[in-house]
């Protein structure tokens, strides 16, 4: 991350409290997103991703801190910056009683796009997203995957530079998910910056950069690769009838660093394969199952928060 490239999104010291809520939904969140990146906000439900998303979409004003989009404050009056922002919400924003075409025309008009340039842009996007033959169908009759595609077109009509997606793969079948990711990659290739929220590990793996959120706080940031390397080595996960006794035994007899996460005994080690025979020799009778794995983003989450990702 070089300082000379201006950031597409820069967030500093963001705090947010919902009216009447006792705790902060976001507590001192800082991160920046470079231009042309796919940036993922990963976290369990209720971690604060969606709140942060609302702030970025300018629907909600932060209680404290600053947000800069392309170096500018999006909360200035007259919403001039909103032209640079394309927002795809988690819950559908299509009008189910209107046709695909009508949905797109009305959305274009909201952004001041009219006449032949509007028609051209709509046709171009319908073609690109293979929706030309659905133009005159009511949005409510389309499948979830197709509706999501129309949502994406809606957000791209005014050719925004920054695209925000809230849990874009919610409600999509595996095929539609692959399709979605092809679109996301295509957008990246055309120079757009994409920020998406997700609670799916495999989706987070595909991002260039990640910020992991837990209980309103940012617990880790970096590329998926770097984050996993940070955990390093192997992860051994053991289940047992008496996890606590097993933990004490392994610590005292083998000198390994052991933690208990949700009743499972978890060992981060440099040489998992050679540790397994030693473990079996010392306490094989107490172990019910034993799993050896390379660290995943879930392990990163566990290491940073001490909680299982769920």
């Amino acid at each position: 991350m070089t300082a000379s490239i201006p950031c597409a999104i820069a967030i500093e010291g963001i705090k947010f409290r919902y009216p009447k809520a006792k705790t902060l939904a976001l507590n001192n969140v800082n991160f920046s997103v470079n231009k042309g990146e796919i940036f993922g906000l990963l976290g369990p439900n209720g971690g604060g991703k969606s709140t942060l998303f609302k702030l970025l979409s300018t629907a909600v004003i932060p209680s404290e801190g600053t947000i800069r989009l392309n170096g500018k404050n999006p909360f200035m009056p007259n919403g001039g910056l909103r032209h640079e922002l394309g927002v795809i919400f988690q819950s559908p924003s299509l009008d189910s009683k209107l046709t695909v075409m009508e949905n797109l025309v009305y959305q274009s008009l909201l952004y001041g796009l009219t006449g032949s340039s509007m028609q051209q842009r709509i046709q171009e996007l319908l073609k690109r997203f293979k929706l030309l033959e659905k133009t005159n169908e009511y949005a409510g009759t389309l499948s979830g995957g197709l509706q999501r595609r129309v949502e994406i077109i809606k957000a791209l009509l005014h050719d925004p530079q920054i695209i925000l997606m809230d849990e874009p793969s919610t409600g999509l079948d595996p095929l539609a998910r692959i399709d979605l990711w092809n679109v996301i990659k295509e957008l990246k290739e055309s120079g757009k910056t994409i920020l998406l929220t997700t609670h799916l590990m495999e989706e987070a793996e595909r991002c260039d950069q990640l910020a992991i959120m837990h209980q309103g706080e940012l617990v880790a940031k970096g590329s998926p690769q770097t984050l996993k390397e940070e955990v390093g080595g192997d992860v051994l996960t053991l289940t047992a009838r008496e996890p606590e006794t097993l933990r004490q035994k392994i610590e005292s007899d083998l000198g390994l660093k052991v933690s208990i996460v949700d009743f499972a005994v978890r060992i981060e080690t440099q040489q998992g394969e050679s540790d397994i025979p030693r473990l079996m020799a010392v306490c094989g009778s107490e172990i019910l199952t034993l799993t050896l794995s390379k660290p995943t983003l879930e392990d990163v989450f566990i290491r940073r928060t001490g909680h299982k990702f769920s």
């Binding site: 979409s57 919403g79 001041g112």
Partner: peptide, 12 residues
């Protein structure tokens, strides 16, 4: 139904 979301984040 969610339609208002896209109106409220548009530059209007």
């Amino acid at each position: 139904e969610g339609f208002l979301q896209s109106v409220l984040v548009a530059p209007i």
